[in-house]
Structures are given as C-alpha cells and as structure tokens.
Amino acid sequence: MVSERQHVVDFLNYLMIEKNCSPYTIEHYEKDINDFTSFLKQQAIEGFAAVSYVLVRQYLVTLHEKKYARNTVARKISAMRSFYRFLNREKIIEEHNPFAMASLPKKARMLPQFLYEKELERLFNVSDVTTPMGQRNQAILEILYGTGIRVSELCKMQLRDLDLNVEIALVKGKGKKERYVPIGSFARESLEKYIQDGRKLLLEKTEKKSDALFLNYKGEPLTVRGVRTILNKLIEESSLTIHISPHVLRHTFATHMLNEGADLRAVQELLGHANLSSTQVYTHVSKSHLKKIYNNAHPRA
C-alpha cells in the first residue's frame, strides 16, 4: 500500500514535471501540506481520505488563532485544494475535495515595494567589476532591473538565449511559455564584460561544461537561492537599510516603466503576465512622481 508521504512526493513531482513550477513554489507547497499533516496528527485523524469540510473549517480557525497573515492563509488553503484535486485525479481518494468549499480570506492588497533611483545608484556602485564575481553580480543586477524578468527565469538563461548584437534575450517563463525581452545598453555592456572575462574564469574552476549564463563560485549553474544570497550581500555592502528580494528589482522595473509613460499592455508583455490585472498593481506612482504631475498639470499648483 502506498504511504501518505508517497502521495505528497508524487504531487510535488507532478508540480515540477507537468506544471513546471519553480523550486520556490514547490518548497511552499510541501511546507503547507506538512503543516496540514501535523494538524491531522494532533486531531488523531489518519489519512487524507478521512478529512471532512468540518475539519477544514477547524483548520482555518487554528490558522487564524496562530495569527497567520490573510495572504498566508489563502495560500495554504489554495495549496491543499490543489493537492486534493491531484488525489482525485489519480483516484487515490474518491471524488471529494474537502477544501473545495472553503472560502479563501480576501488577500491584503499591498503596493509593490520598489527602489528609487538614488537607491539603485548605490546598489549599482557596489560590485568590484575587476573580479569575476563582481562582473557576474553587476550583470545580474543590470539584467534583473533592465528586463524585469523573474529570478527563476534568470537562473534558466543559457548563453544561446542572448543576442547582444540586437540587444534581445529569450526568456523561458512560467508554464513553459517563452518570450523575447529587450536588453538595455547598460545590461548589454555588463553581460559582455562578464561573458568575455569573468564567466570564463569561473568555468575554469570545474571540469564540467555548462551553457548556463550565470555561474557560482564553483563554476556551476547559479540557483535561485544563490541569487538571493548575492543580493543580500550587495544590499549590506551598499549600506541600504531596506530589505529587498530579487522580485523588488522586477517591481522597480515595472514601476519606473509606467512612471515614464510606458503602455500598460507593453509592460504586461515584458513581465510575462498572463492577465492584465497582475500588471495593474504597478500603476501606483511614487510620491515624488505624483507631485511632479500635480505641479505640471494643476493651474493653481
């Protein structure tokens, strides 16, 4: 008989192979399922098939008592709903999904955090571009901000995906979707320096051959976690007091593009958003930009 744990492993493999989910997403799904499994043990419930809608309501109460944010609760319930759909599809349990009727808490609408130009300038001046690691880090910053791609997309990039002569890159996005994005002159120059110099030196540290664009200090393909570590170090060295993730550079790209008058649908295409509503969250403007518009447009400003 297949164990409950094996069902979870099969589901995670399904997310990775068939749904092409990022390692970051899969990690969260696994944590959410493990949290629910721990709850079942506390309630002396054996097996996913024994879960009822009443028990799901009780689980929701437990999550609220632990003071989880609304977005976190919504994610946990959504993860379990997807897991049960998988169990139904594979006929592991009979056609019932106790999470199907659970109402998701309304997500808190947060404005995306972004960097101002002075903050970006400090960040871009940190790396020592005379070293292989410094050249790589500078290229990472330039391409994340210059294109708005996701960090998972950055880590998938191969040398053949770049055409620096025409300043364009092929990006492999979510759900195996591909798109072309333009590369700015600053990103192109950083990439040229890194590819011609730093990357070759990093590749010499291993006998393995790799077509991955970005390499770690061992000469192996850089991971999403590795990029996060690099960014944290750069933030620390730039003396910025804010916490940023690679996604903040994506937010900054979209915010700056729209603030300068870019078309919303063009930004949607560049970001690889399936729905325009995902892009509309960036239509907020900075206080300084708002004041500039007001001063230029209002007769009695």
Rank of each mutant, 00 (worst) to 15 (best):
A212D: 02
T223F: 00
Y145Q: 01
K91L: 05
M101Q: 14
I143F: 09
G184T: 12
K107V: 08
H289Y: 14
L63S: 12
A262W: 00
F214L: 04
I293K: 07
S278W: 05
R89M: 09
D161C: 08
A301P: 09
M133G: 11
S22I: 13
L15G: 03
E167I: 12
E46Q: 13
D197S: 08
P299N: 10
F124L: 07
L258A: 13
L249I: 12
Q6K: 02
A44S: 09
K76Q: 07
A102C: 13
L276D: 10
A297W: 01
F48T: 05
R199S: 10
V61C: 03
H7L: 14
G148P: 13
T283N: 12
F83I: 15
D35C: 13
T252S: 10
Y59S: 02
I168T: 12
Q138N: 12
G219I: 01
V8Y: 01
P246G: 05
I143V: 13
I26K: 01
D197M: 11
P23Y: 08
E90V: 08
T131A: 08
Q158W: 07
Q6E: 14
G226H: 02
H96F: 07
V73R: 03
D211P: 01
I195G: 12
A262T: 15
V171K: 04
L159Q: 07
T62Q: 09
P132S: 14
R265F: 10
R250E: 12
Y84F: 13
Q268M: 09
L249Y: 01
K233N: 09
H273A: 06
M157T: 10
K177R: 15
Q196F: 06
P299D: 07
N165Y: 04
I195D: 15
P23V: 07
Q138S: 12
E178V: 15
N259K: 04
A108F: 03
L201E: 14
G272N: 06
K291P: 11
I235N: 03
N259H: 14
Y84N: 02
V51R: 05
K174E: 15
G226W: 00
F83Y: 12
I195S: 04
T229R: 01
N295F: 07
L258Y: 10
N232F: 01
S103D: 10
G219E: 02
L111A: 13
H289K: 07
K66P: 11
R75A: 07
A187N: 11
E94H: 10
K118S: 10
G184Y: 03
P182K: 07
S22Y: 09
Y194R: 11
E121N: 06
R199M: 08
L123P: 11
T25M: 00
G261M: 11
L231H: 00
V224K: 00
V126M: 03
T229L: 00
A50L: 09
E189G: 06
Q113E: 09
Y194D: 09
L234T: 02
Q113M: 03
D197G: 05
L15F: 09
R228Q: 05
R57M: 04
T223H: 02
S78A: 15
R300I: 11
L231C: 03
K156N: 09
H284N: 15
L111C: 12
